[in-house]
């Protein structure tokens, strides 16, 4: 018997209102309805969540880890984007 593999889903949970949804792990399910039910059973057995998102892993577009430098390096050198770059006399007070 050749069985087809069951698709992989990523699970995101909002612990409570005021917080954003956070990735908690993944699971296998054939469709979105079963993915949601499984997410509830696997990841929220102790009131961990108020809201759950499930996303098919294959639908996630991710940055290429081998291009990490090209992607994120430029911001490293732009220290003028940080408040500490600017000299303000202490007399001015907190700013």
């Amino acid at each position: 018997m050749t069985e087809k593999n069951t698709p992989l889903w990523e699970v995101f949970i909002r612990a409570r209102n005021g917080l954003s949804h956070k990735h908690v792990g993944s699971l296998h399910a054939v469709d979105s309805e079963m993915a949601l039910q499984a997410a509830r059973d696997v990841y929220t057995r102790r009131g961990e969540g108020q809201s759950v998102w499930v996303v098919r892993s294959s639908d996630i577009v991710a940055s290429d880890p081998s291009e990490k430098e090209v992607m994120f390096e430029p911001t490293g050198s732009k220290i003028y984007r940080h408040p500490t770059f600017y000299d303000i006399p202490e007399d001015v007070g907190h700013m």
Partner: peptide
């Protein structure tokens, strides 16, 4: 819970490129 632990761990292993099956 133990079933849940197994499932968290299988997913962690799968991130290394091995399938659940």
């Amino acid at each position: 819970d133990e079933g849940g632990h197994g499932l968290y761990l299988y997913s962690a292993a799968e991130t290394l490129g091995v399938s659940r099956e």
